[in-house]
Amino acid sequence: MMARMLINGVASAHVSALDRGLAYGDGLFESIRLVGTTAPLWQRHMQRLMQGCERLRIPSPDPVQCWREALEVSRDMPDAVVRLTLTRGSGERGYAMPASPTPTRVVAAFPPPHVDRDIQAQGMCMRTCAIRLAEQPLLAGLKHLNRLEQVLARAEWDDPAIAEGVLCDSHDRVISATMANLFAVVDGVLLTPALDRCGVAGVARAEVLAAACPQAQVGELTLAALLGASEVFLSSSVRGILPVRSLDERSYAPGAATRQAQQHWRNLGFSMEQGG
């Protein structure tokens, strides 16, 4: 199925070659899971987008307009992933920000990815990636357009049995998977890595933290601690709550924390069988 796309509210598949999103990765994006005409995490997506716009000094879009366009591009799709991309727009050559930017807004709908029932039930196999995420506190947490580290990480393997990779920083602190946030039960405590140095603060991660509060904690997670965890799962606004069955030579089994997070996901209105 071809993606349905609106650019600044107009049906099109083309942006200017001078757009700063293309030239410099100067922008943000949200990948939003829709179930029919509802988006259970819409408010969290909009909150992160607005916070990102403030930090990058990009004029914020109108959430009501974004919602109308999301419904338009996903019309008649029982399930969809809507990607909302916002760039600073076109400008003169050079890194200096335009004095009065005119952002480019791209809203596109895609079919959701398929996630095997076996993965939902028993978990996925993962590996530790060799690439290390660079630390940049000014960009930490944002879902900005530069995903080159993730692209290079995903290029490290082609084994179809490996579904994801663990990304660490230069100090061997675990940050995330390539396309999801990560939770681990360490010494009986549900822990997710702090993202104040690098990484993307996912909306599904925020939802899991809110649902598990005050038991869940945010803090430093070393690779050694992750390998010693009793259970591990990933959170993704698109793919949902995904148990981890193995990491390199270490095996895990989905436990109570994973199953509770999956049940909360279903309670939000997402169907696990639909991939997220």
Rank of each mutant, 00 (worst) to 15 (best):
A130I: 13
R105M: 06
A134H: 15
A140I: 10
P98N: 07
I131H: 14
A155C: 08
Y95F: 15
T102F: 06
E164N: 13
S74Q: 08
G89N: 10
L71P: 11
P111F: 07
R83Q: 13
F110C: 00
P160I: 13
E164V: 13
D158R: 10
E156Y: 10
S90F: 00
R83A: 03
C125G: 07
A153D: 10
L148A: 07
D116M: 14
T87A: 02
K143G: 08
G141R: 04
D158W: 07
A140N: 12
V81T: 07
E92P: 07
Q122H: 14
V115L: 08
M77D: 03
H114P: 00
A134D: 14
A108Y: 00
R83L: 05
Q120G: 11
A109I: 02
P112Q: 02
L86C: 01
E149P: 00
V106R: 11
W157T: 15
L148R: 06
D159N: 15
V82D: 09
M97K: 12
Q120I: 08
E72F: 02
D159G: 12
R154Q: 15
R88Q: 01
E92C: 08
M124F: 06
D158V: 08
P103R: 02
R147S: 02
V82H: 07
V81R: 01
P78M: 04
A155P: 08
S90Q: 07
L139E: 03
A140S: 14
P98D: 10
E164H: 11
R83S: 03
A121T: 15
R132T: 14
Q136T: 14
K143Y: 04
V81C: 05
S90L: 01
P98K: 09
L142M: 09
G141P: 09
D118E: 15
T128Y: 05
I119C: 09
Q120K: 13
I119Y: 12
A96I: 14
F110T: 00
A80T: 06
E156S: 11
P160M: 14
G91C: 09
A134F: 09
M77V: 03
A109E: 04
L148E: 05
A70V: 12
G91T: 03
A134E: 14
G141V: 05
P111V: 08
E164I: 10
G123K: 11
D79G: 05
P137M: 09
M126Y: 07
D116G: 12
I119T: 08
D76R: 10
S90Y: 00
G91I: 05
D118T: 15
T102N: 11
L145S: 06
R93A: 11
M124A: 15
R147P: 01
L148H: 05
R132F: 12
R117W: 11
P98V: 07
P98F: 07
S74H: 05
A108R: 02
P137A: 09
A80P: 06
R117K: 10
P113Q: 08
C129W: 05
E156A: 12
A80E: 02
G89W: 04
L148K: 05
E72H: 04
R147G: 02
P111K: 04
C129P: 06
L133N: 12
E92F: 08
R117V: 11
